[in-house]
Computed example of a mutant assay.
Amino acid sequence: MGSEDGVFKWTDANTADLIAWRASNNSLFTGRRNAAIKAFELYVKEKQLAGKVTPAWVRKKWENLKQKYKDLKSLSMVGGNTSVATWKWYAVMDGALSSETSLNHFITPVQVSSSAQDAPPIKQRKEEDWLTAVREMEKRQEERERLASEREDERDRRAAAREEERDRRAAEREDVRERQTSEREERREREMLSRQERWEKDMLAREERLERDYREREERREREAAAREERLFKLLETFMANK
Results as ranks from 00 to 15, higher is better:
L103N: 10
K66V: 10
G79N: 06
L232F: 06
G31C: 00
L103D: 14
A171E: 04
T132I: 10
R157E: 05
L72H: 03
A119W: 04
A119L: 14
R179H: 04
W89A: 14
E207M: 11
K139Y: 10
L49T: 06
A16P: 01
V78C: 04
Q48L: 00
E136A: 15
W21N: 04
W130I: 01
T86W: 02
D17G: 05
A96G: 05
Y214H: 07
A205P: 06
E189V: 00
R195W: 09
E197F: 14
N64G: 11
E165P: 01
L75S: 09
A159E: 09
I107Y: 00
E230C: 05
E208S: 14
R221L: 03
E237D: 15
K73I: 04
Y69I: 06
P120E: 01
Y90Q: 01
E100I: 09
V110Q: 14
M203Y: 08
R140A: 00
K139Q: 10
E219R: 01
K70C: 07
K234M: 15
W199F: 14
A85V: 02
E164A: 15
R22S: 12
W21S: 03
T82E: 14
T15P: 02
E197D: 07
L72K: 01
R221E: 02
A225W: 03
G79F: 06
K61R: 07
L193T: 06
L235S: 13
E218P: 01
F233T: 08
E189Q: 15
R231S: 12
E211V: 08
E163N: 08
D5C: 06
R33T: 07
I107C: 03
L75D: 11
S182P: 02
E145H: 12
S83P: 01
I107E: 04
L28Q: 14
E185S: 00
D156H: 13
R195C: 13
V44M: 02
V112R: 09
V92A: 12
P55G: 12
K243I: 14
A23T: 10
S99H: 07
F29C: 03
Y43G: 03
R173E: 06
N104L: 15
R22K: 14
S98Y: 02
S24E: 08
A39C: 04
N34K: 13
R168T: 09
E145G: 13
E189K: 15
A56N: 12
L49Q: 00
R223M: 09
G31N: 01
N34H: 10
A35P: 00
W21V: 05
P55Q: 11
D167K: 08
R166I: 00
S24W: 05
S74E: 11
R59L: 13
S98P: 00
Q141P: 01
P109D: 06
R195N: 12
R151S: 05
W87K: 02
S27D: 13
M1T: 13
A226M: 08
E197L: 15
R206H: 12
E127H: 08
R217M: 00
A241P: 04
F40Y: 08
K45S: 08
L235P: 00
R195G: 09
A241Y: 11
A227K: 12
A16V: 12
N64M: 09
L235T: 10
E191R: 10
G51C: 03
E145Y: 07
N64F: 07
M77C: 02
I37N: 07
M1N: 13
R184D: 02
W199D: 15
R215N: 01
V176I: 08
F106Y: 13
A39R: 07
E63A: 14
M77F: 05
M77I: 10
A241L: 13
N26W: 07
K126Y: 09
Q67H: 13
